[in-house]
Design a protein around this nucleic acid. Structure first.
Lengths: 116, 116
DNA sequence: CCTCAAAATATACAATGTAGAAACTAGTAG
DNA sequence: CTACTAGTTTCTACATTGTATATTTTGAGG
C-alpha cells in the first residue's frame, strides 16, 4: 500500500480540482476552482509549481491544447491524473479519514464556516 | 475566517490525535495514535518538531506532567489545542470538505477514467 | 558506577507551499 | 508596422512543513 508518502494539503486540493474539472482541467480553471471552493486566492505560480512536481513523479500528466487556441491566447496545457496519482490520492484520503474517524466534529463545526 | 493559512497534512493528523487523546496527549501517545490509524510509522522527532511549531504559533499549548513521573522516566509533556488552533483546524477541514464535495469517491478507490 | 527504558530535545535537510515577475500568443487599434 | 491587450504558461526564489537521526534526561536496579 501507499509506502510512497502522502500528498500535501495543497497537492490534495489540486488533485480534487483535477477530478472535478475532468477534461477541462488546466492552470486557470484549477486555480479558479480552488479559489471558489476554499474562499482564498492562490497564485497561478503555486498551481503550476505543484502540478509540475506531481508530473515529475508521474502522478499527473499533461498535454498541450489542440491546434487552434481560441483567439490569440497561448495554448492551454491540460492535466489529468495517472494511476500512481490516483493511488496516492486514495491513500492520502484514507489516512485522513481514519484519523478523523470517531472524532467529535462538533469541535470542528462549532466555528464559523470558511468563506461565505 | 481563516486568513492565517491552513494546517499542513501532518499538522492535521497531529491535531486529530490531540483531539482523540484528550488529556492523555503527549509525544509517545500521539505518535502511537498516528501510526495505528495510518498504518505508517513516523519518527518521534517529527511529532515534536510539528508540535513545537504549532505551539510557537499559539495553536497548541503544553505543560509538564505532575511531580511523580511513573518510575524514573522523564516527565511527560502534555499538549492541548488552544482556540486559535481549533479555528485553523476547523477552517482547514472546511476547505478540504468543500473541495471534496460532490466528488465521486468511487473514483478514489475504484478508479475510473476521467475525460479524454 | 553502569545499564535500561520511556520520554523529550536538538538539529539538519528534503519536500511542499507560495508569490512575483517574465514571456508567449494572437487579435485589434492606430 | 507597432503598440496594446488579455489569457495563459514558465521561471525562479524563498518560506514553511515534513521527517529522520542522534543526543540528553531521568531514576530504578544491578
Amino acid at each position: 500500500m501507499g509506502k510512497d508518502g502522502y500528498l500535501g494539503e495543497f497537492e490534495m486540493k489540486v488533485m480534487m480540482a483535477l477530478i472535478r474539472l475532468g477534461s477541462n482541467a488546466y492552470g486557470m480553471t484549477i486555480r479558479r476552482d480552488i479559489s471558489e471552493r476554499t474562499g482564498r486566492d492562490v497564485s497561478i505560480g503555486a498551481i503550476y509549481a505543484t502540478l509540475d512536481r506531481m508530473e515529475r513523479k508521474g502522478y499527473v500528466s499533461s498535454h498541450k491544447g489542440e491546434a487552434t487556441p481560441e483567439r490569440g491566447h497561448r495554448a492551454k496545457r491540460y492535466f489529468k491524473i495517472e494511476a500512481p496519482g490516483k493511488r496516492i490520492y486514495a491513500d492520502s484520503w484514507n489516512a485522513l479519514d481514519n484519523m478523523r474517524e470517531g472524532l467529535d466534529d462538533g469541535l470542528v463545526t462549532t466555528f464559523e464556516p470558511v468563506g461565505v
